[in-house]
C-alpha cells in the first residue's frame, strides 16, 4: 500500500449522522487492512467522540460542522476530529463508578473512558478557536 492514505468526511452536528460516520470508518478501515474487531473498536471510539462534540462542544446545534479525517499509514490509523465549538474537558478518563452512578441516576463519562480503552493514543489540542482531537489505533494492537 501507499505510505499514507487519507479520507475526509464533513458532517453537520446531528446525532442522526452517527451511523454515516460509523459506515465511513468501517468502509475505509476494512479496505485498508484492519480486522473486524479493530474496526468495531475504532467505530465505537469515534462514535463516542463525535457524540461528545455534538452534545458538549456544539450543544446540539445542527448548523455546526465536524470535520473527520482518516489517515492510514503502514503502522496505524489516526482519526482527526476538528470542531469550532466550546472547549470541553476530556482529560479524566477513569472507569466510571457504575454502582454510584446508578444510585444517583447519573449517566455520562462512559464515552471518554471507552475512547481511551479502545484506542492506543488519544490527544486533544485547542488551536485558533478550534478543538482538535486525534486518536490512533496501531495495526498490531
Amino acid at each position: 500500500m501507499k505510505n499514507r492514505v487519507t479520507y475526509q468526511l464533513d458532517i453537520s452536528a446531528s446525532t442522526s449522522n452517527l451511523s454515516e460516520v460509523r459506515n465511513f470508518i468501517g468502509r475505509h478501515a476494512g479496505k485498508n487492512g484492519f480486522s473486524e474487531k479493530q474496526i468495531d473498536e475504532i467505530r465505537l471510539a469515534v462514535d463516542e467522540a463525535v457524540t461528545n462534540i455534538i452534545k458538549h462542544a456544539y450543544k446540539n446545534d445542527e448548523s455546526k460542522t465536524i470535520d473527520i479525517l482518516l489517515i492510514f499509514t503502514p503502522k496505524k490509523l489516526c482519526v482527526k476530529l476538528t470542531d469550532d465549538g466550546k472547549n470541553f474537558k476530556l482529560d479524566t478518563y477513569e472507569r466510571p463508578d457504575l454502582e454510584k452512578q446508578i444510585k444517583q441516576k447519573k449517566r455520562g463519562g462512559m464515552g471518554v473512558y471507552l475512547i481511551h480503552s479502545l484506542m492506543d493514543d488519544v490527544s486533544y489540542t485547542r488551536d485558533n478557536g478550534k478543538n482538535k482531537m486525534e486518536m490512533c489505533k496501531n495495526r498490531n494492537s
Binding site: 452517527l18 462514535d47 463516542e48 457524540t51 444510585k103 441516576k105
Partner: peptide, 16 residues
Amino acid sequence: EYIASAGLGVFMAYIE
C-alpha cells in the same frame, strides 16, 4: 448489532 454508551446510559437511568 451495535451499542454505544448512550444506549448503556438508558439502562443505568431506570434500573433503580
